[in-house]
Design a protein around this nucleic acid. Structure first.
Lengths: 300, 300
DNA sequence: GCTTATTACGGCAATCGTAATGATT
DNA sequence: AATCATTACGATTGCCGTAATAAGC
């Protein structure tokens, strides 16, 4: 099975007759005819049948056509990729990230990327989820890492933004070691009800937590902070129990000597996904698709 | 650029050295070397460079490798497709549909499918959205058409069901011609508040409507029916104003002589998508992928 | 000296084109 | 008679393998 044969196959379908296909391909009619016979013999299936003096697709041909076209499209993409390397463009990637969450992933992935593309410039933009989506839409940002709930996912679908989930923003509770709950490894929802809860003031993560807590926790039982760092400082002073993404903790790597304790949540979870997102469009430069590939490759 | 060259390229990367790749491919070392030089000359880029006595990928090679692999994978799929036609399996497609909504689409698409696959049996299963998802998961159903809100979409994402939006379940209001509102072409939300509203009793569509209406319409102002047909009968008797998917109306083709009037909704919409869904898996038979292709092809 | 890649060269297979034949309208 | 596909056949291309050469460890 040769590329040539697939191209001939596709062209015959495209132009209707072997004659015309041959003309468009600048080859003789017997060549195309012979190649198709060859192909049919090799795969053991008829692709065309005679209808009058023309040829038309058989049922088998109809079934296989899209698979052949998929190959030819992949070839076109390779050719595009080659010409991109030969004629390099600006070479700037504007990467949006929400503050902190999973920021630990970025340096690792960027290191990997820079090895292949030492000349591509990556601009890191920290911003809120909605602002990031806005910037993707008006083309002042190329790709981003955000945390998304289902509302954000619907919003993205409606506005033509594609997302790939790369991990979950599981939550943990954080308390001071001198807090009564510090003796546990896990805690359940009911144990939270009488505690003072410390949360980050805004963002999708807070929104989800609020949805979950609902009216069960009275509003004056909540401390709001602007950053997770501040939340941890409050915990350190034993002012309450903080709920935050596990990834924040692992990114900050609280060590053994720390005065705070991490508690896993037994019976509730914030359903937020860490997503790699980008605007849906017809064409992406090769360095961008490879950038995406590296970031959405979660095999490590 | 020949298939052979791409295969050689891929194999060298896979096996590390030209020697081993040549051995695995049952060809001589000079052949593979020559083909790679040929390929590099053609595309004008170095793919490998010497490192000691071995060859390693250049930066360009690293960039292009995934594109080449995409081609080879597409070829594998074609080969799989061919062998499927040669060794046909059971050939049964179990298609789930939710009652009524967009059922008008099914016969049209099935007709198209049967032309290519006269021997494949299609079993139509009418069921509720959640039951359909359940059946997809336990493999008693292959594909389905449902209406999904964002909650259902999240559910599907979590449970490994893929969905493709093929249209929107826009809602319209339906009133008797003798109803006071029948003089309008469009109505707004505020005009609904004092009306008796007729809705289907259950399902995702009802769920969405309930979410939207919230507490603004008092509960005793709602009539529930089991089918949209019944809703229309109630409207016919001027018992209230029904809200239902536009697709139901167009499927049933209410003609000119009808005593009911369709009103478009000016300032609110149910955000439900008609989705073609299937379980994520490694392998789909060719007739199934073509079935999906036909159903998700919205160019008509 | 052993391993790995590249060059040189002859044999063989495969593609292409021209010309002739076949089939349909 | 005109259009479109297929068969026949010779010329050319180009792939492959063996053998020889070059380069690392």
């Amino acid at each position: 099975m040769e590329m040539r044969q697939l191209r001939y196959f596709d062209s015959i379908v495209k132009y209707g007759t072997m004659r015309e296909a041959a003309a468009k391909l600048f080859i003789s009619e017997p060549s195309i005819s012979q190649q198709i016979s060859e192909l049919q013999k090799e795969i053991g299936l008829p692709l065309f049948e005679k209808q009058g003096r023309n040829v038309v697709l058989t049922s088998e041909g109809k079934q296989l056509l899209p698979l052949v076209q998929a190959i030819l499209e992949a070839v076109t993409e390779l050719e595009t990729g080659i010409s991109e390397i030969l004629n390099p463009g600006s070479g700037l990637i504007r990467l949006g990230v929400i503050p902190i969450t999973r920021l630990d992933l970025v340096p690792k992935k960027l290191t990997e990327f820079v090895k292949i593309y030492p000349d591509i410039c990556v601009e890191l933009i920290e911003s809120g989820t909605l602002e990031i989506i806005e910037r993707l839409l008006n083309d002042t940002m190329d790709v981003a890492l955000i945390a998304a709930n289902s509302r954000i996912k619907s919003l993205m679908e409606l506005s033509g933004i594609k997302y790939k989930v790369i991990s979950n923003a599981n939550s943990v509770a954080v308390v001071s070691c001198s807090h009564p709950l510090a003796k546990y490894e896990k805690i359940s929802f009911s144990q939270l009800l009488d505690e003072r809860i410390i949360l980050r003031r805004q963002g999708i993560y807070r929104e989800e937590i609020d949805n979950f807590l609902g009216d069960s926790v009275k509003h004056d039982g909540i401390y709001s902070t602007d950053t997770y760092e501040t939340s941890i400082k409050l915990v350190d002073s034993n002012l309450g129990i903080a709920i935050m993404p596990e990834t924040f903790i692992s990114a900050y790597g609280l060590n053994e000597g720390s005065k705070i304790k991490i508690l896993f949540l037994d019976d509730f979870q914030v359903s937020l996904d860490i997503c790699f997102i980008y605007k849906k469009r017809n064409y992406y430069p090769l360095y961008l698709t490879n950038f995406m590939r590296i970031f959405t490759d979660t095999h490590d």
